[in-house]
């Protein structure tokens, strides 16, 4: 149970970063931290105490294995996370080129 709680705290740390930081890069880091906390949570869902890795090995008898589906879930989510993070960083760099700053208070042409 404590591990789930730690995941949740990690999620909140990321959310705090996204909400309070003024620097574009720090916001991206906050988002990433939130993502990773969710990956941990998903991996924990499939975890069974004492379970082996879910690989078929003909030489050994089939024993207790962990649930492979959340792991596939996490792997796919990591790939998606890579794409979003790369795109966010690319936009952040371009914004830096335009404004010469990462401060979101100074990047505010859109209002209303």
């Amino acid at each position: 149970m404590i591990t789930y709680l730690l995941c949740f705290i990690l999620f909140l740390v990321g959310l705090y970063g996204v909400l309070t930081r003024k620097n574009l890069i720090k916001i991206i880091i906050g988002l990433s931290v939130m993502e990773y906390s969710l990956y941990l949570f998903l991996a924990l869902i499939g975890y069974i105490d004492g379970g082996a890795a879910p690989i078929i090995d003909p030489s050994k008898p089939a024993g207790l294995v962990v649930d492979p589906l959340p792991q596939a879930f996490v792997l796919t989510a990591i790939v998606i996370g890579l794409a979003t993070t790369a795109l966010l960083l690319a936009i952040a760099i371009r914004l830096y080129k335009k404004y010469n700053t990462f401060d979101i208070d100074k990047i505010n042409t859109l209002k209303g």
Binding site: M34, L38, Y99, T109
Partner: peptide
């Protein structure tokens, strides 16, 4: 300038939305 700023805002909020959806699916 406008497009990049809009896209960044969209991505941060969209990213949070995706995470919430992923959490609910989990």
């Amino acid at each position: 300038k406008d497009e990049l700023e809009a896209s960044f805002k969209y991505q941060v909020l969209g990213g949070i939305a995706s995470l919430l959806i992923l959490f609910s699916l989990g």
